[in-house]
């Protein structure tokens, strides 16, 4: 696929995430433990959660002055705004951290270069429907990270137990696969470890760590 091909896939995916039932489901999950451990004790000025959905990880970023939740789905952000405002009422406004919600595309981020100290990019890169688009997004991630910034990203791994019966089929399609969740199907690129390492190495980012945990590959990266 060339850079802008796959636009239809992305449009369909946005429709899935804008669906009210999906928003409701997204609002109930707690933070992932790997992400929680990674964020523990981290502080700085600006933290960003790319593909924040209904905001399950925003609370982990309270050590930062500004917390930016980014998603392409409006209804997910509306839900994240509601829970954020609820949090403020429950816990008091001034824990020192300001939360902002921004509708944006992970391939073309609306942030100045070198402006973000920490970026979470959890379970979103694998939704981009071509390698060139995934590389564009990794290049954008590199651009917005500050010099001593760090990012944690995760994607679904081919080794995830849920793909046990479909592994051959997925590998035969070079990792491009539609997964049915509820009554909707959505596009995923299912990564093999060496392919993720290869994509990260082709991007300007430096890889500090890459590991398989609970069926996801997690990578810790810094700007190159």
């Amino acid at each position: 696929m060339t850079a802008r091909e796959g636009g239809g896939e992305k449009h369909r995916l946005k429709e899935v995430y804008d669906d009210k039932a999906e928003t409701f489901a997204g609002s109930r999950g707690g933070p992932w433990s790997y992400v929680e451990e990674f964020c523990d004790g981290r502080e700085g000025e600006v933290a960003v959660d790319l593909g924040c959905g209904a905001g399950r990880h925003l609370r982990l970023l309270r050590g930062f002055d500004k917390v930016l939740g980014v998603d392409f789905s409006r209804s997910m952000l509306t839900e994240a705004r509601r829970t954020t405002l609820e949090d403020r009422e429950n816990y008091g406004v001034d824990d020192g951290s300001e939360v902002y919600l921004i509708q944006a595309d992970v391939e073309r981020l609306p942030f100045s270069s070198d402006s973000c100290d920490l970026v979470l990019y959890i379970a979103a890169l694998h939704h981009l429907p071509s390698q060139s688009r995934r590389l564009d997004s990794l290049t954008e991630l590199d651009r917005v990270l500050s010099d001593d910034g760090v990012a944690l990203l995760s994607v679904w791994a081919i080794k995830h137990p849920r793909f046990e019966d479909e592994r051959e089929e997925i590998l035969g399609a070079d990792g491009d696969f539609h997964v049915s969740i509820g009554d909707r199907s959505r596009f995923y690129h299912i990564y093999e470890r060496r392919e993720l390492r290869n994509d990260l190495e082709r991007s300007p980012l430096e890889v500090a760590k890459l590991e398989l945990v609970d069926g996801n590959y997690y990578a810790v990266v810094s700007p190159g």
């Binding site: 600006v46 500004k66 930016l68 300001e98 902002y100 919600l101 921004i102 944006a104 595309d105 073309r108 981020l109 609306p110 942030f111 100045s112 270069s113 402006s115 973000c116």
Partner: peptide, 19 residues
């Protein structure tokens, strides 16, 4: 959003400053 957020925002297309 708050006004101060605009310090780090830019145009997603050309990366120019936003008013």
């Amino acid at each position: 959003m708050r006004e101060s957020l605009n310090d780090i925002l830019c145009c997603p297309v050309c990366k120019g400053d936003l008013e």
